[in-house]
Design a protein around this nucleic acid. Structure first.
Length: 611
DNA sequence: TCTGCATGCAGC
DNA sequence: ACGCTGCATGCAGA
């Protein structure tokens, strides 16, 4: 393995510059160096004995300790850079956010307390890219908190010097105790424990995936761009094929000076040749017939490719043959992950051909088929809907059951049920779905009504939707005022329905996100139990590269899809693990309820070959 | 020149 | 009047 970035370095998110270097020395110490933007050592080296890690061990679970720490996103990248992987963790920041909001723990001290430093968002400050940050900064000071009363730090827990006095404070151990209490006293401690474990495991996975990166062949990418756009040109210059298309567009509308990148100019030009358009969106243009349409649609497609995933993108985001997006667990209200950097959530199918396994390795790509409908079936215990998806494509099963005529209709209707469609084809098909699957549809309707009333809804494992804000409440209140106008009432109704569609979707999307977290956590756990992964030590082997260079590991995750980079010889084993993990996740969430979570799994050399 | 907003489009 | 996103771009206003 030569094209992963060198073990022990953390590339800057923006430009690949190294700001921090940490490595494990021969005698078991962790050595942390801060480097400036030019790569010069910026301060004295910090040495830490390897047993003095932040967080503390709670005792043995299975044979692995669970580290309890404040914020995986700030800590774990540093450990990974030092060649250290952690098996289990409890992320206090992420878990606090869940418990603070969950309707299952509203009576807890944690939920009722005044806002503390645990409520202040620190999620979006990746330590690894901050210049000059070291482990020492993170654990020996209280750098992220301005509160003077926060005298206890995480370091108290490290050495076992923890004081009983911490219980009343806002330190790590006190917070952990509050979280345990909140869970224990809740109506669903089992579900919450699973959610917190899954969320925390997700945080570990997120850091590991960012560290490992997605294998990316810049030569393949470049060839693809050249084929589509023409040879590479300097930034600001239109590549050949785009320039040709621009010329054809100008000719077709008779405006030699037209800039096809300007929406207003384009609108005016289209109107002038008699096309009645209300926007310049591709789907609207597709309905029209005019010589300008074909070249314009082609232009838009290619211009998008160039600006979103062109050479500039490649130079910015691909470091040593790997794409390292930052994953942000819990970054979406529903519990889905967000990402930052390089648009990892929108990796177009167009460029997936550049995602290629290393020589001798394979990519195992798996996605959960019709995940959200299956989740809905299980959530509502709708056995008929679960039956429709048993061992088969769920939409096909709905057709087979005579509910609708085509797979496309089944899909549109289901999405409409989960998103709250009221009109169009989807709206028309809904009654038939409601007749066939009354329990499932009742659940989505109930969630929508709750949202319209301003109430929160809760996912399978206990993540609750936020309550609407002041502005929302004020708008609703105004509609009940004696002097309310029709416009006031309309606005209030419309806003209430908006929130209802949000809560309707929240419960399904959020529960699906929980399933996906459990799935991925199981995949990770089993991958790490493979002989090849466990062989030797759990530590990186110095210059020979990290564990990520030798053993199968997760490299990508997208809502209902995971990708594992694996030595070719282990691909079959990895497939089995991924399938087994899906079943396990289903049982974790829904026990014995008979619902299948089918996967599409492909072992490929290139991401483009998957589905 | 900088910033916030609207548009458009990529993903699930 | 169909949910959740991230990001590039152009444009208007500061």
């Amino acid at each position: 393995m030569t094209d992963a970035f060198p073990a022990g370095t953390v590339p800057n998110r923006q430009n690949g510059q190294v700001h921090l270097l940490a490595s494990r020395t021969g005698n078991g110490e962790i050595l942390v160096l801060s480097l400036d933007a030019e790569g010069n050592v910026a301060g004295p080296a910090l040495r830490l004995p390897s047993h003095e890690f932040p967080g503390y061990v709670l005792g043995q679970e299975r044979d692995r300790p669970r580290w309890v720490w404040e914020d995986t996103a700030r800590i774990y990248p540093l450990l990974l850079a030092a060649g250290i992987r952690v098996h289990r963790a409890h992320d206090l920041r992420l878990c606090h956010a869940i418990l603070r909001q969950s309707s299952l723990t509203q009576a807890s001290a944690l939920a009722r307390a005044e806002p503390s430093r645990w409520d202040r968002a620190v999620a979006f400050e990746p330590a690894a890219s901050a210049s000059g940050v070291t482990l020492f900064d993170l654990f020996d000071s209280d750098g992220d908190s301005a509160a003077g009363s926060d005298t206890e730090t995480a370091a108290d827990g490290v050495t076992g010097r923890d004081a009983g006095s911490a219980a009343a404070g806002f330190g790590t151990q006190a917070e952990y105790r509050r979280q345990l209490d909140a869970v224990r006293a809740s109506a669903e401690p089992g579900r919450l424990r699973l959610l917190l474990a899954a969320e925390s495991a997700g945080a570990l996975i997120a850091a590991e995936m960012q560290f490992a990166g997605l294998p990316w062949r810049t030569d393949v990418h470049d060839a693809l761009l050249t084929r589509e756009l023409g040879p590479r040109v300097a930034p600001g210059i239109r590549p050949e094929r785009l320039e040709n298309l621009a010329r054809r567009i100008r000719d077709a509308v008779g405006e030699p000076g037209l800039n096809p990148d300007s929406q207003p100019d384009l609108m005016r030009a289209l109107q002038k040749v008699g096309l009645k358009v209300t926007s310049t969106r591709a789907w609207e243009l597709k309905e029209l017939t005019h010589p300008v349409i074909d070249p314009l649609l082609e232009y838009k497609k290619l211009a998008r490719l160039l600006s979103a995933n062109g050479w500039y993108w490649m130079d910015t985001w691909i470091v040593d043959g790997r794409f390292h997006p930052e994953y942000i667990p819990g970054g979406v209200v529903t519990g889905r992950w967000a990402t930052r950097g390089g648009g990892a959530l929108q990796l177009p199918k167009q460029v997936r051909g550049a995602v290629v396994a290393d020589a001798g390795w394979k990519l195992v790509v798996a996605d959960a088929a019709q995940l959200e409908p299956r989740i809905l079936a299980a959530l509502s215990a709708d056995t008929a809907m679960a039956q429709a998806g048993r061992g088969t494509d769920l939409y096909a099963g709905i057709v087979a059951g005579g509910v609708v005529e085509t797979r496309d209709h089944a899909k549109v209707a289901m999405l409409g049920a989960m998103y709250g469609a009221t009109s169009g084809e989807s709206g028309r098909l809904l009654p038939r779905l409601a007749k066939a699957f009354p329990r499932a549809l009742a659940l989505t309707e109930t969630a929508a009504r709750a949202g319209e009333r301003g109430e929160s809804v809760t996912t399978r494992l206990g993540r609750s939707s936020p309550r609407p804000g002041e502005r929302w409440l004020a708008t609703q209140a105004k509609a009940y005022d004696p002097g309310a106008t029709d416009a006031d009432e309309r606005r209030a109704r419309s806003q209430a329905r908006d929130w209802g569609r949000f809560t309707r979707n929240f419960i399904v999307q959020g529960s699906a996100a929980e399933w996906a977290l459990c799935w991925m956590a199981e995949v990770r756990r089993e991958l790490r139990m493979l002989p090849q992964g466990a062989q030797g030590s759990q530590w990186a082997q110095g210059a020979s590269g990290s564990e990520f260079d030798r053993a199968p590991h997760l490299v990508f995750f997208l809502h209902d899809e995971v990708m594992v980079h694996t030595p070719a010889a282990l691909a079959d084993t990895v497939e089995e693990i991924i399938r087994r993990a899906a079943d396990t996740a289903g049982r974790h969430l829904f026990g014995d309820f008979p619902v299948d979570f089918l996967l599409t799994v492909a072992t490929v050399d290139s991401y483009a070959q998957a589905k």
